[in-house]
Structures are given as structure tokens and as C-alpha cells.
């Protein structure tokens, strides 16, 4: 979809909802350099959310949506869980269908879009909880990777089933006492990043969402690699402050504590050889673009 598509006829402009007017005037559709720095300066693709106050998932959503390289041609796929309460507010097409089937939906969707738009780039991005990704949907998560489906899978890892009230999940830490784990979880946190690597993902990152610039970088990398090469996986720690007994203001600190080098969300990355080549190429182009922008700015300054 080009930005032209969302334009409103002049005569009708004032009767459109303010949010929509805003989208037309200030959205960053078509802006190749869009990123987290637009937050606060441009129209965001998410307005409000219905998560708990201070839930780190809300930050994660804002950073991710600001970082999509091609939102005007991106379709997102969600699953049931706290994220499904946010998607209806999001200004890119998104699909909720069932709990756990997100990677199956995305497989069909991505292929359909490739059949229908063979000469255009349509990105598909999955965003689902840890229960959806690792427990009920694990077969579909892995099988999409085995088949080398070309989309990005993002897991909001809050280490439990938040939406149903804090039950044990496969990504919960061993020993954690939760609903349905009344004497503590008896087995280790599933090592999905390693499994993703072995299952054929070309770009895998495990981190928190404490730093917006980092989120921007990994989102862009993951989407570009998925577009050109094959499946990619991001596991992002978005602690459920409600279920771990934190206050609204404490989400960020919880993430900072958990990303220390010895902790389970210390930055971890795997990049396949073809993905490395692609990312190096992209970095070189980006460097050239920045240098060019600098040169132009300098030229302008001189002529003034």
C-alpha cells in the first residue's frame, strides 16, 4: 500500500476521526529511516493499549511498531494472550484467530501474499506470548522454521501465562511457584533460542526491551533477514509485573536486572552465514546513506 492510499478527500477530511487524520498527516509510512526516535515526534502506529499500567509489553509494542521497516506493507499475526488485547489498537493489518496457531497462520498468509503480489515486498511478523510460542503452538513454531518460511517470529517472553492469571509456562524459570506449579516448576526454562538456531532460523536474538535502540536494531535485522533469506526469531523479555509482584514503575528495572551478563536475558545472538552477509551489506549501505546525508547537509550549510 502506498501512502497515497490512506489520503482523505479534502471535502471529507474534517469528518474523519482525529486519529485517522493524524495518521495521514504525521505517520511515518514510506520513511525508510523510521525508528524509535520518531516516538513522540510522529504519529505512532499504536495509540493506546489495554494492558496493565506500566506493563513492559506496552513499551515493546511501541518500539517494535516504530521500527518496522515497511509498515505500509506489513501484516502482523498475533495469538491469544495479553498481546491480543493490544492488536485491535494497532494501525497495521493484523490477524487474531486462535491460541497457538500463529506460525501456521503466518505460513499461509506469507505464501498467499507472495502468490498475489509476486513483485512486491510484503512482510509478515508474528508476535505472540511464550505460552503460545513454546507450549500450545510449539509444533507450528518449529515446523514453520523447518520449512524455512520467510517471516519473523517474536515471542513476548513474560515467563508465564499472564492472560489467564499466571500459570506455569515452558519458558518459566525452574523452581518458580505459580498457579499449576504449586510446588515450583520442576524443569528448566526451555532453551528456545538454541532450538530456533537448530531448527533453521537465520537470525536469533534473546534480550530484554529495556533499550529502544537495541529493539530497533534487532527488529530491523530480523525482518530484513526473514524477507531475503528465511525464518528469524526474537525472544524479548517483557516481564509480567502483575504476576511477579512488581509495581507499575518497576518493569524497566526488572529488565535491567535480568539482562546482566550472568542472567537469563543477557544479550544472546545467533546469525547464519547468509544472514551475516546480508547484514554486512545493509550496514555498508546504511553507512553510505548517512555519509551522503552528512555531505548534503554540509553543502547546504556552506551555501547559506
Amino acid at each position: 500500500m502506498s501512502k497515497e492510499r490512506i489520503k482523505i478527500a479534502e471535502e471529507l477530511f474534517d469528518i474523519m476521526p482525529v486519529e485517522y487524520q493524524d495518521l495521514v498527516k504525521r505517520a511515518t509510512y514510506g520513511n525508510e529511516t523510521r525508528g524509535w526516535k520518531d516516538i513522540g515526534n510522529a504519529k505512532e502506529l499504536i495509540e493506546e493499549h489495554s494492558l496493565c499500567a506500566g506493563c513492559p509489553e506496552s513499551m515493546a509494542f511501541r518500539y517494535i511498531l516504530a521500527s518496522l521497516p515497511n509498515p505500509e506493507d506489513t501484516v502482523m499475526v498475533g495469538s491469544t494472550g495479553c498481546t491480543s488485547l493490544v492488536f485491535p489498537h494497532v494501525a497495521v493489518h493484523n490477524i487474531h484467530s486462535l491460541f497457538g496457531n500463529q506460525n501456521a497462520i503466518a505460513s499461509g498468509l506469507k505464501r498467499a501474499l507472495s502468490v498475489r503480489f509476486p513483485d512486491r515486498t510484503k512482510d509478515v511478523v508474528v508476535l505472540a506470548g511464550d505460552g503460545a510460542t513454546v507450549d500450545i503452538g510449539l509444533d507450528m513454531t518449529l515446523q514453520a522454521w523447518f520449512r524455512q518460511e520467510k517471516f519473523t517470529t517474536i515471542c513476548f517472553d513474560n515467563e508465564l501465562y499472564a492472560n489467564t492469571g499466571g500459570q506455569e509456562s515452558g519458558l518459566m524459570q525452574k523452581g518458580f511457584v505459580a498457579k499449576m506449579a504449586p510446588v515450583g516448576k520442576s524443569f528448566e526454562k526451555v532453551r528456545l533460542p538454541e532450538i530456533a538456531r537448530e531448527s533453521g532460523c537465520h537470525y536469533v536474538v534473546n534480550c530484554t526491551v529495556s533499550k529502544p535502540n537495541l529493539v530497533e536494531k534487532v527488529i530491523k535485522n530480523a525482518i530484513h533477514v526473514a524477507r531475503e533469506i528465511g525464518p528469524t526469531y526474537l525472544q524479548l523479555y517483557t516481564p509480567c509485573i502483575l504476576e511477579i509482584g512488581k509495581n507499575s514503575m518497576e518493569g524497566l528495572q526488572e529488565m535491567r536486572d535480568s539482562e546482566k551478563p550472568s542472567e537469563r536475558f543477557a544479550y544472546k545472538e545467533f546469525v547464519s552465514e547468509p544472514a551475516k552477509e546480508l547484514l554486512t551489506e545493509m550496514a555498508a549501505k546504511e553507512k553510505e546513506r548517512k555519509a551522503e546525508a552528512k555531505r548534503q547537509l554540509a553543502a547546504k550549510t556552506v551555501s547559506v
Partner: peptide, 14 residues
């Protein structure tokens, strides 16, 4: 999974 894959494709206009 198949029926969800079919759904994904149909959501995408196939």
C-alpha cells in the same frame, strides 16, 4: 495446522 494455514492464506486474499 493445515486448517490454520488455510485460514492465513484466506485472510491474505487467496
Amino acid at each position: 495446522a493445515v486448517m490454520s494455514q488455510c485460514a492465513g492464506a484466506a485472510f491474505g486474499g487467496a
